[in-house]
Design a protein around this nucleic acid. Structure first.
Length: 428
RNA sequence: GGGGGGAUUCCCGAGCGGUCAAAGGGAUCAGACUGUAAAUCUGCUGGCUCUGCCUUCGAAGGUUCGAAUCCUUCUCCCCCCA
C-alpha cells in the first residue's frame, strides 16, 4: 500500500477548532480516517456568480482534510442549483435561467480550484452534478431514486418544518425534491470515486443523512456525514454582511481592500474563534495571541493578524500588501504626506476611484459619483451630519464646490464619508 | 374544481376615502465616545431644480373634488375542502 501521511486524530483537531457541529457514527468515522486516505466531498450550489464568506468554512475544511492526506471532491451543483435548496429557507426562491446558472457554475469552479491541490496521490477532484442529472429522465428518477424516500420522513425534517407549519408560506414540490437530488449525489460520488464522507454546514444535516441512507440502499455502502457550525457573531447579527451586502470571494465583487477591512472590523468577542475557522494557524499560536492581547490592555492584535491571514489565503500575498498599503494611507498616516506616486498607487491597489471633470466641483455630486451616497438627498444628509470629509477636513457647507485648493498635485482629492468609506477623485 | 385569506416603503408590520412619503419595531447609515472595537446616547433613512414639486402601498382600469384605503379585471402567494 502507498504510504499516506494521515494526520492523527483529524477529527479531534477539527473539534478543537470548533469546526464540527455533528457527525454520524463518530467512532467509526474516526477509525476510517485513521486507517486510510478517505475520499470526501462538499457541494457548492451556484446561487450567485461568486462564493461568499459562508462558503469559506467548508472550502477550507476540504483543504484541511487534504492536508491530512485525504482526497477532497468539490462538487459544483449545476443541477441542484437549478432547483434550490429549501433547507431552513423561509420562502421559496425564484428560479434562475439555465444559462445564467451555467455561467455561475464556471465561475464557482474557478473559485474553488485555487484552494485545493490537484497533484499527488490525493489530488482533488472537481465535478458537476449536472453530469449525471442532465440526462436522467423523470421515470427513472421516480422509480430508481424516489422509491427509496419516504415522504413521511421528509416532512418531519426540521429543515422544511417552517415551510410546512407556517400558514403564510409553503413549499413547492420542486424544492421539496431537493434533498433527493443531493442524496443521489452522494450515492453517485460513492460509486464513481469511492467517496465515503460528505461535509457541509449544519443546515445540510438533513440532506446529508438523506444521501447516507440512499447510498446504503443503492450501493450497500456505509458512508458518513459531518456538519460544521454556521458562523455566528456574538452580537447576534448575521456574519459576513456589510452595508453593501455579502462579502464575496470574487475580488471584482469585494475588493481585497474591503475584504481586509471586513476582518479588521471583527469584534473582540469573535476574533479568536474566527482565526480558528478561517486560517490554518495552529491552535497554540492562536491561543498565545489571545493571551497576549488580554495581557496587553491596549488595542488587540488579533484583528490585524486575522485580516492578514484571511486576505492572503483568499486573495494572495500581493493583494494583501496592496490592501495594507491603502489601509495605512487612509487610516494611520498623515494624509498630507502622501506623494503623487502614493496617490497613483492607491488607485492601482484598488481604492475606489471616480474620474470627474474640473467643472464638476460640487461636493454633493462628487459624493454620489463616488458611490459614497446613493442620492443627492442622502449626500446632503451626510454633509449636514458632518460625515463628509475632503482631504481630511470636515465640510459641512451644503453647496461646497471643490476647487484647485482641494486638488492635491493638481488632480487628486480624497473624499471620505463617515469613518471608513473612502473614494479617490481623479480630476481630468 | 369549490371556499377562505393575503400582496404596504430594506425587512417585519400598522393603516382601510382626505390631517399619508404612510404608525411602531428591526436592520442599516451617520454623529458623540473609542481601539478603523464593544456597550451607550443622539439623529437620519423615496426622489428632485427642496418653504414646494414628483414618484411609491402586487398590475391595469374605474368611481370620486380627493384612493394605500371603494369597485372591476388580471398576476402571484397561502390555507381548507374535493
Amino acid at each position: 500500500m502507498e504510504s499516506v501521511m494521515n494526520e492523527p486524530q483529524l477529527i479531534q483537531s477539527l473539534q478543537a477548532r470548533g469546526l464540527i457541529a455533528q457527525t454520524t457514527d463518530a467512532a467509526a468515522l474516526d477509525a476510517l480516517l485513521a486507517e486510510k486516505s478517505v475520499t470526501l466531498y462538499c457541494g457548492f450550489d451556484p446561487t450567485a456568480d461568486s462564493l461568499h464568506l459562508g462558503h469559506l468554512v467548508p472550502l477550507l475544511t476540504l483543504k484541511r482534510f487534504q492536508l491530512a492526506g485525504h482526497r477532497p471532491i468539490a462538487l459544483v451543483g449545476g443541477a441542484t442549483g437549478m432547483i434550490g435548496d429549501p433547507s431552513f429557507k423561509a420562502a421559496e426562491r425564484k428560479l434562475n435561467t439555465p444559462d445564467v446558472i451555467a455561467s455561475w457554475v464556471d465561475k464557482i469552479r474557478g473559485q474553488v480550484e485555487p484552494f485545493l491541490s490537484f497533484e499527488g496521490e490525493n489530488a482533488a477532484i472537481v465535478d458537476n452534478n449536472y453530469n449525471w442529472f442532465g440526462q436522467l429522465n423523470v421515470l427513472d428518477f421516480l422509480r430508481d431514486i424516489g422509491k427509496h424516500f419516504s415522504v413521511n420522513a421528509m416532512i418531519k425534517k426540521e429543515s422544511v418544518q417552517q415551510r410546512i407549519n407556517r400558514d403564510d408560506v409553503g413549499i413547492s414540490f420542486t424544492e421539496f425534491s431537493y434533498s433527493l437530488l443531493q442524496g443521489y449525489d452522494f450515492a453517485e460520488l460513492n460509486k464513481r470515486y469511492g467517496c465515503q464522507l460528505q461535509i457541509g454546514g449544519s443546515d445540510q444535516w438533513g440532506n446529508i443523512t438523506a444521501g447516507i441512507d440512499l447510498t446504503r440502499r443503492l450501493n450497500q455502502q456505509q458512508v458518513f456525514g459531518l456538519t460544521q457550525p454556521l458562523v455566528t457573531k456574538s452580537d447576534g447579527t448575521k456574519f459576513g454582511k456589510t452595508e453593501s451586502g455579502a462579502v464575496w470571494l470574487d475580488p471584482k465583487k469585494t475588493s481585497p481592500y474591503k475584504f481586509y477591512q471586513f476582518w479588521l472590523g471583527t469584534s473582540d468577542a469573535d476574533v479568536y474563534r474566527f482565526m480558528k475557522f478561517f486560517t490554518f494557524m495552529a491552535l497554540d499560536e492562536i491561543n498565545a495571541i489571545e493571551a497576549a492581547d488580554q495581557a496587553s490592555g491596549t488595542k488587540p492584535e488579533g484583528q490585524r493578524i486575522l485580516a492578514e491571514r484571511a486576505t492572503e489565503l483568499v486573495h494572495g500575498h500581493d493583494a494583501l500588501v496592496a490592501a495594507q498599503r491603502i489601509s495605512q494611507s487612509l487610516f494611520s498616516e498623515d494624509q498630507g504626506s502622501l506623494t503623487e506616486d502614493d496617490f497613483e498607487q492607491l488607485a492601482l491597489d484598488g481604492l475606489p476611484t471616480v474620474t470627474l471633470s474640473r467643472e464638476q466641483g460640487s461636493l454633493i455630486d462628487a459624493l454620489v459619483a463616488g458611490e459614497l451616497a446613493t442620492s443627492k438627498s442622502q449626500a446632503r444628509g451626510f454633509i449636514e451630519s458632518g460625515a463628509a470629509v475632503v482631504n481630511g477636513a470636515k465640510v459641512t457647507e451644503l453647496t461646497y464646490a471643490m476647487g484647485d485648493a482641494d486638488r492635491r498635485f493638481g488632480r487628486y482629492t480624497l473624499l471620505r464619508r463617515g469613518k471608513k468609506n473612502h473614494c479617490l477623485v481623479i480630476w481630468q
